[in-house]
């Protein structure tokens, strides 16, 4: 069984909620990414989402754009991200999803990229700008390679489209809790419980909620209605602040643990 699916089965069995963290790969460098991944596993992170830096991240807010820029400046390329995943795999079985823009996959070819990702130890792909309508043989190739293809559902997604998306997705459904780009918000959308309940009528896949969750309180609140909370920009922001400080891994992990603990208490 794929590590993501396995993790959600275990969480369900234990009656726990999942906690997913997003960071930009190569920010500030890939060695830091590797060390952060290992530390996050200890801190209680269930799934690590690694953003592969792209020159034109149009779904991302400023915090993640700057992380992508730092990633590119540190020489991060898709093959090097895969090497880093392989390096993480020597010490950890933490489920890893690549959050990626389609052109980076398209450039080497879907089949090649998926084969390379599976070999490196990646468990799933979340391709921001590849809707099911354009997916072609993507899902079949992902299944063959044993990877989960994670699709997004948005507040603007109507019922019939939710049905289409959940039928085709695997691993979990990523619900984007608000209209907009990635980034921190002060409030969790007020109709979140209803939205999640609506998606649940269409699928038995776990539902993770992300975009805009930044504090332990929000992560806990989301955990109370969904199967998992995703925190991205708030963690990326800490990485930006600590940068190359020797405290980077310890400092960011402390924050991540506070989020994980909050979700686990949900």
């Amino acid at each position: 069984m794929n590590r993501i699916e396995e993790r959600f089965v275990r969480l369900k069995r234990d009656g726990k909620k999942g906690f997913i963290v997003y960071i930009g790969a190569g920010d500030p460098n890939l060695e830091a990414t590797r060390r952060l991944a290992l530390a996050f596993e200890q801190a209680g992170v269930d799934v690590l989402e690694l953003g592969v830096p792209f020159s034109d991240p149009l779904a991302d807010g400023l915090v993640n754009q700057l992380a992508a820029q730092r990633g590119l400046e540190s020489g991060t390329t898709p093959p090097k991200v895969l090497e880093t995943v392989a390096a993480i795999r020597k010490d950890s079985q933490i489920p890893i999803v690549l959050y990626i823009y389609f052109n980076l996959i398209h450039r080497v070819g879907m089949e090649q990229f998926i084969t390379d990702a599976a070999r490196a130890g990646v468990d799933g792909l979340l391709v921001l700008d590849l809707p099911p309508e354009e997916a072609d043989n993507y899902e079949a190739l992902m299944r063959q390679a044993g990877l989960c293809h994670i699709y997004l559902v948005a507040p603007t997604t109507p019922d019939d489209r939710i049905e289409l998306i959940v039928k085709r997705g695997s691993g979990f459904i990523y619900y984007v809790s608000r209209e907009g780009v990635t980034g921190m918000q002060n409030q969790v959308a007020s109709n979140l419980a209803q939205q999640v309940a609506k998606i649940r009528t269409h699928t038995s896949l776990p539902i993770a909620v992300g975009f805009g969750i930044s504090s332990p309180e929000q992560a806990k609140l989301v955990g109370s209605v969904a199967d998992a909370s995703v925190v991205g920009s708030a963690v990326v922001n800490q990485i930006a602040e600590l940068g190359r400080s020797p405290e980077l891994v310890v400092g960011v992990s402390r924050f991540v643990k506070s989020l994980a603990d909050a979700v686990k208490s949900a």
Partner: peptide
Amino acid sequence: AHGHFGPYGGRYVPETLMHP
């Protein structure tokens, strides 16, 4: 019907924009 000109075109956008 899907906006393709042969192998070109299409609709490669984040989900939030698909329905709009």
